[in-house]
Design a protein around this nucleic acid. Structure first.
Lengths: 271, 271
DNA sequence: CGGAAACGTTCCGTTGACCGGACCGTTGCG
DNA sequence: CGCAACGGTCCGGTCAACGGAACGTTTCCG
């Protein structure tokens, strides 16, 4: 095992205030490649060689050499001098089993949900201290584009899916979230740890979570946890609607129905 | 080190039954990482350390070290001793712009198509000598699961999307396809280069391609090319149906309508 | 028009990251 | 009980990777 931070025994203080992804350092080749691939933000689209060198902090020659190799592999593409993420990344990413199985099983059920409500449904897992959206199905005209892209991230403590994962997931995760200050995403976001704990207790009683304008003003969500074969929570499923059309009981009822079916499907796959 | 097949010039027999991606060799770190990530087949789910070492041809110690680093990054995950592709691959893969833009723009139109036909619609690009499926939208009960997963691949010469890309794409690609023997996927697959050329000529006249049971017995498809801002073909869009419900003219008409809208959208994004 | 700045690319001597054979403790099968 | 296969660790030799320097070109101003 490798020691993360020097294991000085007295460091019960902040063992790891890092983001969900521990090490941006490392002078290994893989570390550099990681730097390169991860400086492409969600919207950066294309970056020049110099821009890459600047952002990664690597020598221009190194970036040049590695990028060449990445292009050859297909992880990067080159269009008139600019680099962007390559198609092979998408291809390999689609093979990731945890994602693929969950999506394949949930998709039809999410479509049912959307047809029954004409609202938007999200499928998410927890990663670090955030939710990672695996899929999203929207109703006819209901395009909620902004804060909930597929593969987008949001804090655990402000989203309905996140609260569901916190309420029904491992205690340790909750403690980790509580041990850092809760960022305020909207004026209505729960930032008091005590209040959050109360919300989660209520959630455990009710079997679902509701959230009003804590992630985005004008919208509310209801979410439930999805449990796998072992009984552990593996994901969360939600319905999001404008506050004007908030039908908490109806959403919760539908979600519970769908959740039961989903648990059966997951168990059948030994997930 | 294992050389794949030595590129002996006299091997016009089976020149390259390999995937469309040129170099599996290279003793660089990236080459090894590539080997590791790409031995995970579409269904392999999880592999043990020894299995990885065996498949990649790398030393066990090397696989161990690199896998550790990959796990730390999130490109691999470890569950009770077994490795599998990690969630971060999915996350990064979803950021790939060429894929994301095409999908985001096409998705609503594909849903329209599916609602109008109650059949299945595919979005695909060409990669090497194959089509790579970017998205797939199915009607109510119409689950065509097998040969057309998202991120799945099929030969260019037997699928409707592939023929569309060949008919309207760069001449050089067609020549490349023609220069290798055309594999027979079903008994009805076009394997005679002359016949393929004829089909493509007809396609260019009509503006669309139709294919009957060349990819899968019992099913047919109609496809059109999608052109970007520069006028170049960037993808293909298709409708697939059981042969019993083949309505070529209707499918072609709908696709043309959608294609025109898509071209406008792509141009607006300077794609 | 000319000079500076930024770009992508190549070169090359140095070095430390990577390699992989050998080895360890454990597990499971016959 | 012995053998084989497993995951994991060790360590000295070596070569792939490194990055500073310099290249030719383009772009942008003064």
């Amino acid at each position: 095992m490798m020691m993360e931070t020097s294991p000085s025994p007295g460091c019960l203080f902040q063992p790891d205030p890092r983001e969900p992804h521990p090490a941006p350092d490392s002078n290994s080749v893989l570390g550099k490649v990681r730097r390169i691939l991860e400086v492409f933000g969600l919207d950066d689209e294309t970056l020049s060689l110099s821009e890459l060198a600047r952002r990664t902090g690597l020598a221009k020659a190194s970036v040049h050499r590695l990028s060449q190799e990445l292009v050859q592999w297909g992880l990067l593409e080159r269009r008139n001098g600019e680099y962007r993420l390559g198609m092979r990344l998408f291809e390999i990413g689609q093979r990731v089993p945890r994602q693929r199985i969950l999506r394949d099983l949930a998709r039809p059920l999410m479509i049912d949900l959307v047809q029954a409500t004409n609202e938007t449904s999200h499928l998410a897992v927890s990663d670090g201290l955030e939710v990672l959206y695996l899929d999203k199905v929207s109703g006819e005209q209901t395009q909620i584009s902004r804060p909930s892209r597929v593969a987008g991230r949001m804090p655990l403590h402000c989203t309905a899916t996140g609260k569901a994962l916190l309420a029904f997931g491992p205690r340790q995760l909750l403690e980790e979230v509580m041990s850092a200050p809760l960022t305020r995403v909207t004026p209505r976001t729960t930032v008091a740890p005590g209040l959050l704990g109360q919300e989660l207790r209520k959630a455990r009683e009710q079997g679902y979570v509701a959230e009003f304008e804590q992630t985005r003003i004008g919208y509310m969500s209801v979410a439930i946890p999805l449990t796998g074969a072992t009984g552990a929570v593996v994901a969360a499923l939600s319905v999001t609607a404008p506050t004007t059309r908030a039908k908490v009981d109806r959403f919760a009822g539908l979600l519970n129905l769908v959740g039961r079916r989903m648990t059966k499907l997951l168990s059948a796959q030994e997930f």
